[in-house]
Design a protein around this nucleic acid. Structure first.
Lengths: 208, 208
DNA sequence: ATATATCGAAACGAGCCGTTTCGTTCAAGT
DNA sequence: ACTTGAACGAAACGGCTCGTTTCGATATAT
């Protein structure tokens, strides 16, 4: 989401040329910038290689040369700001889960900045088999990584040793996804405390 | 998913004609059949009015006459088998939630029959604004209807009066959605008991 | 100096878009 | 009995995007 003016792209009247027998970083950057801008404005609708090339003042073959799928390009855009944040230890499982939802998931997507891009990726994964595999692998890796939140809680003695970390993370992520895809991130954000509470303690007063 | 052979469509060599100044049910049926078949085979990929018309041996104007959007056609296909099942009372909240997940959500989508169609609808909703509104309205109505599961439990005295029914249904539906969209319905199905347990009782042994 | 890989421009054939025209078929209204 | 009018499918429309290919210019690497 670099919001600085793209001096190197918009202000140069001359088109970029080849810089020899190697990848031109300026072109790659311009292409990613253009793709990001398009996704931010319209989501996946109207997102085409053609449009990206036009906006980036790049040739279509240049894009096809470096990105096999439209999805690969979108995921690259997404990863640009998903700069491997870690999870600060808030000291409690409740705090960690709340922070996870509010900072890494819903909060990260909020404001239709990155959320729009991610929605586009998910939509593409419903269409394209390669995209589905990419997304599934990405998800699995993220969830595995996120599970350390629960592991920390185990170490603290907050939860038993045999706690199903995967399941907890799964429920949290599911909740976030669902509301992202329904365009209800703001509403979901306001109910984070209740969600975390139910997952930790279940329905209050339930007689099972 | 009517799997009977379409005698009236595939075996007749003669094309359907107008039956006068009214909607031709045979055409509508053939169009829905064709749309369903296409969605089942490829999902939303390659799903075009053009393709539906070809497969149904119908004219494009006929389709455009009756369905404003591609999405409307897809939702009609989906609704064909979503024949307003009610929720049989299993006697317990746990049983009802389990049945909800296993029969109405995951189980209904399983086998890539209806799930594929629904995935296509969700994907379309990430692209098209009208589709998004349609889906959101549909979701809201379904959730409201499903909340009666919790209301029954309230009446039984299983849960307190002030239980947040909406939130519980939300978590259940979120879980199902997430795994549908990741193509993991089978895996999700096998963990239904644990999911219901966490939502009802929280993490066992949690010290909050 | 030569080989090699990149760049962007342009044009390609193909496919789908949504619309319009057209002749046919038949129910409803007079 | 006759006319009106709507729905049907076939075909063609101009317009757009697709992914690919061709091309000449460029500059590094050998």
């Amino acid at each position: 989401m670099s919001s600085e003016p793209d001096i190197s792209v918009d202000n140069e009247e001359t088109a970029r040329r080849s810089i020899g027998a190697r990848r031109n970083p300026a072109s790659q950057e311009a292409i990613l910038d253009a793709a990001e801008a398009l996704l931010r404005e319209n989501g996946i609708a109207g997102f085409s290689i053609e449009a990206v090339a036009r906006r980036a003042r790049a040739g279509k073959p240049t894009i096809y040369r470096w990105w096999p799928h439209r999805t690969a390009l979108m995921l690259d855009v997404y990863k640009r700001f998903k700069n491997a944040k870690s999870f600060p230890d808030t000291g409690t499982l409740r705090g960690d889960l709340t922070s996870f939802l509010e900072n890494h998931l819903l909060g990260f997507w909020q404001g239709s900045l990155c959320g729009t891009v991610y929605r586009a990726v998910v939509a593409e994964a419903q269409t394209d088999k390669d995209a589905a595999e990419l997304l599934q692998a990405y998800q699995a890796e993220r969830k595995l990584y996120s599970a350390r939140i629960v592991e920390r809680a185990r170490a603290r003695g907050e939860v038993p040793e045999d706690t199903d970390a995967e399941l907890m993370i799964d429920l949290v992520v599911s909740y976030a996804w669902h509301h992202l895809l329904l365009g209800q991130v703001d509403a979901a954000m306001s109910r984070v405390p209740q969600v975390v509470d139910v997952i930790l303690k279940g329905v209050p007063g339930y007689r099972g």
